[in-house]
Design a protein around this nucleic acid. Structure first.
Lengths: 258, 258
DNA sequence: CATTTATTGTGTCAATGTGACTCATTACAT
DNA sequence: ATGTAATGAGTCACATTGACACAATAAATG
């Protein structure tokens, strides 16, 4: 399979791209979905270019679908990055990526492609929240790895992608205070301590167990289900699921975690 | 003075623009700064195109400076609008603008300019908060009016500009719950009822006078100044100014109006 | 100058939410 | 049968909130 540079040159808007900051929750930690470019072994956010006949939300949804197999998850615009040094050759890492792309795939139309990749790219970041268990990360023709990386173990990334991640994390931290998040990041059923760990991971602070439970129950968007027998030598926790009706009501009112 | 279409064609990125939703506070109401296109008399948000050698924040600052004379005010990115029908001829209003621009200014390079204006424009909206009293709206070569319009008396606007305004208003309403706004929208000194009216205008709901006062005072970012003798037959209210140090501390902590 | 009017600064009180903590419960191991 | 570890629920002091009351005061009125 070859990189379809003809499609790129003919049908995509030059100088514009999107990048997706996909958050997932695994092993009591927040993770981000990253891809690794072939040969160069440089990490980056999964992204894409904008076809002339698509809007950016559609492209972001498509990138997400392609990388995770998921549709209709929480996905929203985050921020536009347009600084003058957003080139693929701004730092050694990014230059490596560009060199690899060029040497590997450019056979014809070398000049056009080189021009295409050497201009400034204005990129819009999207933030997605997904259930990490449901995702089976997919590589593509330009990447030889696509994996969940814990937020506190990020490798060096191309251009300003780590800034994008930090910006999205900050935005998530703000959002959780106005809206009950969780729904998108957790599986159908989860324990209260799952939910608490998620909040602790997002807010990056310890919360009191009893008070957290009381507060969440009182918000009234949780349905208590049967108990979960873990096999551990302790009291079995209840499982909870989300009452969509109550959840959406809270979303509308903008009531979240203080 | 002529419209500098050569600069446009040579130095600006085609298909990209910014638009500024500038909020001001006047007569106890939120206002937006709008411009009216020459001849066509169609209203729109003040905006601009992106020179190849500038980032978008710089362009937004420049538009704001040009229209209001203000620098270093609250100005931040809001949202990217990229729907497929974002053309200048999508609706009768926008088409009128384009026709006017074309017939008025296009003498040479008609085709290039027509191509430039007829493609889809992806536009990033910016939200600005300014002290309306400090602003003297400026027209330019493409506009014959630039005025403060109350949020509840918006005229029909081109393309999706009214959506941009509503989106920015919603964003402001969320932001005020996490941050003490006010500083940017009010003059140096203001009364407590000024501040309350501003909050009521943004949140679009009545607030209890006594409780509002108590809450604001307790937040601790207001310096009480001398009294203001209005000449009205009532008790003179105190003037307040903002204690920048305490204000910035609240900004960092993210403590606002519940 | 006493009285009225409109608005402002402050206070009260019940209801609710919060942080810190305790204690009984329970699934499993020994 | 007993111990262990985590869970569900409860207590209590304290802070915040919404609703309302009341005194203070700058100017108008007679």
């Amino acid at each position: 399979m070859k990189f379809d540079y003809k499609d790129l040159l003919e049908n995509c808007i030059p100088g514009l791209s999107i990048d997706c900051v996909v958050f997932g929750y695994k092993d009591k930690k927040l993770h981000v979905l990253l891809v690794r470019f072939i040969d160069s072994h440089v990490w980056a956010l999964p992204g894409g270019f904008i076809p002339k006949d698509q809007d950016m939300d559609a492209v972001a949804n498509q990138v997400l679908l392609q990388r995770t197999g998921l549709k209709e998850v929480f996905l929203q615009q985050s921020h536009v990055f347009s600084s003058l040094n957003r080139h693929f050759d701004i730092n050694p890492r990014s230059r490596l990526v560009m060199d690899t792309i060029k040497s590997t795939w450019m056979e014809e139309q070398k000049e056009e492609l080189e021009a295409w990749f050497s201009q400034r790219f204005i990129s819009t970041s999207y933030m997605a929240l997904v259930d990490a268990e449901k995702v089976h990360p997919q590589i593509d023709v330009l990447s030889d790895a696509c994996d969940w990386i814990p937020l506190d173990e990020l490798p060096e990334l191309i251009i300003d992608h780590s800034e994008m991640i930090h910006q999205a994390h900050e935005q998530l931290r703000m959002k959780i205070r106005l809206l009950p998040i969780g729904k998108s990041l957790l599986p159908e059923r989860f324990t209260m301590s799952d939910l608490q760990s998620l909040y602790e991971a997002i807010l990056d602070q310890k919360l009191d167990r009893g008070n957290f439970q009381r507060k969440m129950i009182r918000l009234g968007f949780l349905n208590r289900q049967e108990k979960l027998m873990t096999g551990a030598q302790n009291k079995a926790p209840y499982l909870y699921s989300i009452n969509d009706e109550a959840y959406n009501e809270l979303l509308e009112k903008g009531i979240g975690f203080s």
